[in-house]
């Protein structure tokens, strides 16, 4: 049996639930993979793991320590979801004064132990594979486990949500209806969900970086604003879901 662990950091448990449902729906996998550590199921064996899935970003020293310890016990580490891969939606507070942030929520803000910016897990440990999404597509986890079982890893196609729209035969919501859509700059994997529901993508799989540069990205954002997108839509990808990539793209 291949031993699998699921570790949760700062996150919503959504990717864990998605993985759990996907795994339980594939009986042939249940015969090959064994859940060793999964607090939601009450499983707490901590000796060693073949695969460690990590959900969530790192937002305090306690989590950082826990993550390092789990990494030592694991052969392969998979970052699960946009939070683990890029920092996630909670990155929207990055760059702000953390003391101010705490004050908006807590009567005693100084008691709260929290980093000023949430970190993607690759800031702390070596990551072997990344599955992005908010939430991840359960099929991606199943795909990963099947490939792992035969000794390989899934191939990653560097493409945008647009490619999925084309493959699914969907009419472009931006071209045909003038609906602002982040699909062209967003990592694929969801199956073009939002356009299939007649709305624009809002970037929850994170910003694509392979072939974007600062000028082209800014031109694209300008276009969205002209189509009537609220400024917040751009903030959600540039400072939220795609925070790390955006910082990287802006440098180059």
């Amino acid at each position: 049996m291949i031993r699998v662990a699921f570790l949760k950091l700062t996150s919503c448990s959504g990717c864990l639930n998605q993985s759990l449902v996907a795994l339980l729906s594939n009986e042939e996998l249940l015969g090959k993979f064994e859940f060793a550590y999964f607090t939601e199921l009450g499983l707490l064996t901590e000796d060693y793991f073949d695969i460690l899935f990590v959900e969530g970003s790192v937002s305090n020293s306690k989590q950082e320590k826990e993550l390092r310890e789990f990494r030592k016990k694991s052969k392969t580490l998979v970052a699960l979801g946009t939070c683990a891969v890029q920092g996630g939606i909670q990155s929207l507070r990055s760059g702000e004064d953390v003391e101010e942030v705490k004050k908006t929520v807590y009567p005693f803000p100084d008691k709260i132990d929290i980093y000023s910016d949430p970190k993607p897990i690759s800031d702390v440990v070596k990551v072997d594979f990344a599955i992005t999404g908010c939430p991840i597509n359960g099929d991606a986890v199943v795909n990963f486990l099947r490939k792992y079982d035969v000794g390989g890893l899934p191939l990653i196609l560097p493409e945008s949500v647009c490619c999925e729209c084309k493959r699914n035969g969907l009419t472009c919501v931006m071209v045909a209806q003038g609906t602002p859509c982040l699909g062209p700059v967003t990592v694929s994997g969801c199956g073009a969900l939002c356009p299939s529901f007649q709305r624009g993508c809002y970037g929850c799989y994170g910003l694509r970086t392979w072939d974007l540069d600062k000028t082209r990205l800014e031109k694209f954002f300008d276009k969205l604003l002209k189509l009537g997108a609220p400024e917040s839509m751009i903030q959600v990808i540039a400072r939220g879901y795609g925070y790390r990539s955006y910082k990287y793209v802006r440098r180059g």
């Binding site: 448990s13 705490k102 908006t104 929290i114 400024e231 839509m233």
Partner: peptide, 29 residues
């Protein structure tokens, strides 16, 4: 660890807020 949703929705347009707050919970989004 807290994620400060009440802070991060500030200055965001109300039309995108339902999508943001749905991320608070992975079970009852």
């Amino acid at each position: 660890a807290p994620r400060f949703f009440e802070y991060i929705v500030r200055n965001k347009h109300f039309t995108i807020v339902p999508d943001l707050v749905s991320r608070i919970c992975g079970l009852c989004g």
